[in-house]
């Protein structure tokens, strides 16, 4: 055996052993590459764009999320995020059981309007027993009643340049030193027009509880819970998400979560 062969074998083995022990030196070694500003994280996050496009190709625009029978509702809808907003504007409405509430719809629409809760309840309704999936990993089955968002959009006549629906909310989320910012969310028009996308005012055959987003929350059944804004104050049709928050399309998105949460 020539010395070269021995060296080559040794080199490859040592390289292999060295490579396999690098990750074992501790996971915090990689933390620096994974902060929200890191370009490495941006590269990894590009896979989310791939997921979004793949889902849009694979999943028909009107394909329904699974619905369940009422017997599968075995518990109350688990609340998460804000569960009891304390903003004065919200408290004033809550005091009068939302009798003075008006949902405003504006932005890129022909006919900006506002609806009272009673008006929304008089519009065509849809009820669906669906599974709510939290990004944390848990699921909860509940019945949701509301008006299809598409019916509301038809009333206001969406302008052709609109690409997204933004939900503005009453509740503010505390960000520590940088103070509190209002919750907001956004979806594309495919999900906005989806038959199961409803502005829900009822949960499990009762008026939507405060913990679950009273008076109005959106259900986007093919995405995760954080997309389904609660305590909706207004809806805005827009062509870009840049002007809102940090421009990522939602409160959690601004903190690093993906905008498309169908996964």
């Amino acid at each position: 055996m020539s010395p070269l062969a021995i060296n080559r074998r040794r080199f490859l083995t040592l390289a292999g052993v060295a490579a396999s022990t690098v990750p074992l030196s501790g996971c915090d070694a990689l933390d620096g590459f994974l902060s929200n500003q890191s370009p490495v994280r941006d590269v990894l996050a590009s896979a989310n764009g791939l997921t979004y496009r793949a889902h849009r190709i694979l999943i028909g625009a009107d394909t329904l999320a699974p619905e369940f029978s009422e017997s599968e509702i075995r518990q109350g809808q688990r609340p998460n995020g804000s569960t009891d907003p304390s903003e004065p504007e919200y408290l004033a409405l809550k005091d009068k059981t939302f009798a003075d509430y008006r949902l405003t719809i504006g932005g890129l629409v022909e006919k900006p309007v506002s609806f009272s809760l009673a008006e929304l309840r008089n519009m065509p309704a849809r009820a669906q027993v669906t599974r709510h999936d939290c990004v944390e990993g848990w699921s909860c089955i509940a019945k949701w009643t509301g008006v299809p968002l598409s019916a509301v959009l038809d009333e206001v006549k969406v302008k052709p340049e609109a690409r997204f629906v933004v939900f503005h909310c009453f509740d503010k989320m505390n960000l520590g030193l940088s103070g509190a910012v209002p919750y907001y969310e956004s979806i594309d028009l495919i999900d906005a027009r989806h038959p199961q996308t409803i502005l829900a005012y009822g949960c499990n055959d009762q008026a939507l509880p405060v913990a679950n987003g009273a008076p109005l929350r959106v259900r986007i059944e093919r995405q995760l819970g954080y997309k389904m804004a609660k305590y909706i104050k207004g809806i805005e049709l827009v062509s870009t998400l840049a002007p809102f928050g940090s421009g990522k399309g939602g409160f959690w998105e601004d903190l690093g979560y993906e905008w498309y949460a169908g996964i």
Partner: peptide
């Protein structure tokens, strides 16, 4: 524990970003 997760601190959003990239 921290030594078994990426990032080492709790960061679900980044965990998901890493997971879905390598899942593809």
């Amino acid at each position: 524990p921290a030594w078994a997760t990426l990032p080492s601190y709790q960061d679900l959003a980044t965990g998901r970003v890493i997971h879905f990239f390598f899942a593809w």
